[in-house]
Design a binder for these strands. Sequence first.
RNA 1: GUCUCGUUAGCUCAGCUGGUAGAGCACGUCACUUUUAAUGAUGUGGCCGAUGGUUCGAAUCCAUCACGGGACACCA
Length: 509
Amino acid sequence: MFSNKFIQQRIEKANTLREAGINPYSNDAQRNTTIEKFLNVNSDIEQMENKRDENRNYTVSGRIKFLRIMGKASFVKIEDESGMLQVYVARDNLPEGFYNNIFKKHIEVGDIIEVSGYPFVTGKGELSLHVTELKLLTKAIAPLPEKFHGITDKEVRYRKRYLDLIMNAEVRKTFQIRSRVISLTRRFFEDKGFLEVETPMMHPIPGGANAKPFVTHHNALGVDRYLRIAPELYLKRLIVGGFEAVFEINRNFRNEGMDATHNPEFTSIEFYWAYKTYKDLIAITKEYFQYLFEHLDLPTILPYGDMEVNFENFQEIPLIESLTKIGGVPEDIVRDKEKIIAYLKERNIDVNEAMNLGQLQGELFDEFVEEKLIDPTFITEYPVEISPLARRNDEHPEITERFELFIAGREIANAFSELNDPIDQYERFKGQVEAKDCGDDEAHAMDTDFVEALSYGMAPTAGQGIGIDRLVMLLTNEHSIRDVLLFPAMKPLNTEDACESEEEKEEEK
RNA sequence: GUCUCGUUAGCUCAGCUGGUAGAGCACGUCACUUUUAAUGAUGUGGCCGAUGGUUCGAAUCCAUCACGGGACACCA
């Protein structure tokens, strides 16, 4: 475990310190300000005649990131969560022997120290702390990665996120923004009168989306449980129960592939709003984005890769219209099944001829429109064939009261007026069960409990889901979901441990 | 799942068409009281991702596997 020679060296230093009566893992932290505050409060030192104020005294702490020893004096850069500070350590300001025997020999980059002293500005103009007292708080026995390049290997960054966070300030920034987004989202919906609720993460029947679930087992009840793939059906039960506006921000789990936009566990907000329609959802979504941008202090035109997204330019267009106006698909083709198939084939796009018109229109959208939707665009009026959970439009029953929001060529939200006819819902579940029996293992299972809930009457309701991870990617200009997840899912490293050899023994039997 | 690129010192990377391992940072020792990736001198450090194969000889060529990146497919 600690066989590395650098680690051995540092363990020895820690032991020497113990022998000298210094606890390398002190629990006596006394800091009275953060680095950010120190720098703010003392910004006036620059103006002073001798550029120092020995009457002020501060105690700050942080991890040593740079260490420049120059004989009888040293410059040390320490970093806490709020920022980086240069401290000046001179032999003659410390107790006899401390500088030469303790500081120079046993304190190094990576260690966490506490320093006390007064503010001053160096010859090169940097506001620093002149140390009169220095204490080791935590000895790091593992050396930090290289100080200039830091750690760039993505695998190491994801597997040892703590190292990534120590070395890369911009990574900390990304996760601070993520936290702000979640906090602001919560506040936005609370201010609108929505009630935050928590619904089960372990479902007896996986529902609310078409996806393969993770399965676990409840010993006490002797039954299998499914990690939820979506909270939808429980949130709607709450609307039945009389709550008129609910939301939940939490994890969903899907037992599927992983790539730049998919992680087996991901965070979404779903909200349901009684006596409203998808039109109201479009309005509140615009308001939500405006609220986020205001409170995150982001410019309304944001770069994303080589794109520029204007968050003040929200567009709204029905799906069929988008095919011709944005996708450039000829007008006479988009409502004709055979012509769409021919059109796709001409362009060497694989097409399943068994698809119905709605599905083919969806194909056209995916091929010719989606990637062109850079500024936020609500695509509305989805064909009913590709919207199994949405309510039909009363006047045009072939389309649904639904929209998806696209930004930077990617889907960010999915919303619709909810289906609240229990008989219709029951029939749709039955259709799904048939598909499941025919081998579609992502088809929805029958949920009679949910149908029963609907049969008591669910007020007309609109509901929406927003993928928080993808939203954060957009706001932080990150292009992999792993860069907005603190601990993304990774394959285990192949260590030939006891568990595996047991498995092998099993196989041999 | 398919294709493709990668895996060499604690970290960042060289290493050509095969001849037994290199740099910078870090670390050790020495010098240095205003440095900014401090500097100068000097030294230590490697089962070249794993396993097979080809060869007199493999970090290098071939095969398989593991892990990772990217693209595509699938999936909301």
